Computed example of a mutant assay.
Amino acid sequence: MSLTLTLVVLVVAVALVFDYTNGFHDAANAIATAVSTRALSPRKALAMAAFFNIIGALLGHGVAETVGSGIISPPNGHEGLLIVLSGLAGAITWNMITWALGLPSSSSHALIGGLAGAAVVVSSPVHWSVILDKVVIPMVLSPIVGFALAFGAMVGVLWLFRKARPTPVTRGFRTAQIASAAAMSLGHGLQDAQKTMGVMTLALVAGGYHTRGAGIPLWVTLSAALAISLGTASGGWRIMRTLGRGVIELDPARGFVAETVASSVLYTTAYAFHAPISTTHTITAAIMGVGATKRRSAVRWGVAGDILTAWVLTLPASALVAAVLSLLLHPLA
């Protein structure tokens, strides 16, 4: 086996490891609310999330193409492969740190920060305009939109059911949460698995085993879908506790609205803009939005502040780790 092929295999394997960590790190995004309101048991919720992650991963390639060709343009050969490898290492490192702390940070932004950090320190092209348009602006807007839509939708639900008996309403929303959790899992697969597909394709292009702009190979799609599904099935209990009960004590109606709003934002950005937004940011903001309709003090703003800190640090922290590794590996190219 040639050195180039060995590096390609290594990068693809590490990309799938990242995909797996993405699954267990972000499993809470899809099911924390459904589990916390007892709409689903943890085992059933994880199984359902894993299944719909696979389905979502097969529904498009717009986000994958943005990540695979729009973020960085590494040179072909060993140098390009080492840049991609360093970027993945930075993303995985940040995922593991935030998972250990129980903080729902963005695997998506960790990956993009890692790729940019690994490329810029060795003077490889970084498409800053694409990062601004497809990453930074959506990173700021998606939580704001998620919060505002969730707040407005929850106000509408409260008004619509203001005269209804609480018990049957709660029972109905608990059942409806099964569908909204499935929709959220589908959106997670649609967004997050595609990011790994893009990185794998980037590595294949750098290694000379795929043509830039020729689409995403089927085996890449299937393997990325399977890896994120397996990661989701293994669970992410630390982060699930933070999202499900750490930010606010959710009831079924608020859980349903948060999931429905967040999944709608994920679908819109994936299909309309091909933007790799954070499922974590979107669902967390939606949970805060529905929580704010109770009373301001219902949201645990201290926990929310810790989450916001992790959000702000994700891009630079993953970029820093990737940049250091990229500098160390660069002489080997």
Results as ranks from 00 to 15, higher is better:
D133M: 04
K134Q: 11
K134C: 08
K134L: 03
V135K: 03
V135I: 04
I137D: 06
I137S: 08
I137N: 09
P138I: 12
P138Q: 10
P138S: 01
M139F: 13
V140K: 07
V140M: 12
S142N: 11
S142I: 01
V145R: 00
G146C: 07
F147A: 03
A148E: 07
A148V: 15
L149I: 03
L149H: 03
A150D: 11
A150Q: 12
A150F: 00
F151L: 14
F151K: 10
F151P: 06
F151Q: 02
G152V: 13
G152I: 02
A153E: 06
A153H: 00
M154F: 13
V155M: 10
G156A: 11
G156N: 07
V157L: 12
L158R: 14
W159H: 05
F161I: 02
R162S: 15
R162Q: 15
R162K: 13
R162A: 15
K163A: 14
K163T: 14
K163E: 08
A164V: 00
R165F: 06
P166Q: 08
P166T: 03
P166K: 05
T167D: 13
V169T: 15
T170K: 11
G172M: 15
G172L: 14
G172N: 13
F173V: 07
R174G: 15
R174C: 13
R174I: 12
T175P: 09
T175F: 13
T175L: 13
T175K: 12
T175S: 04
A176R: 05
A176M: 14
I178D: 09
I178M: 10
I178K: 11
I178Q: 11
I178E: 07
A179Q: 09
A179N: 04
S180P: 11
S180M: 14
S180V: 13
A181T: 11
A181C: 12
A182S: 15
A182W: 03
A182Y: 07
A183H: 12
A183S: 14
A183T: 05
M184N: 02
S185K: 08
S185G: 15
L186T: 11
L186A: 04
G187R: 04
G187K: 06
G187E: 03
G187D: 08
H188V: 08
H188D: 02
G189F: 06
G189M: 01
Q191V: 05
D192V: 05
D192L: 05
A193P: 06
A193G: 08
Q194E: 09
K195Q: 12
T196L: 04
V199E: 02
T201S: 10
T201K: 02
T201M: 14
L202Q: 01
L202F: 03
L202C: 02
L204M: 13
L204F: 05
L204K: 00
L204G: 00
V205I: 15
A206E: 07
A206P: 03
A206N: 02
G207T: 03
G207I: 06
G207H: 10
G208M: 13
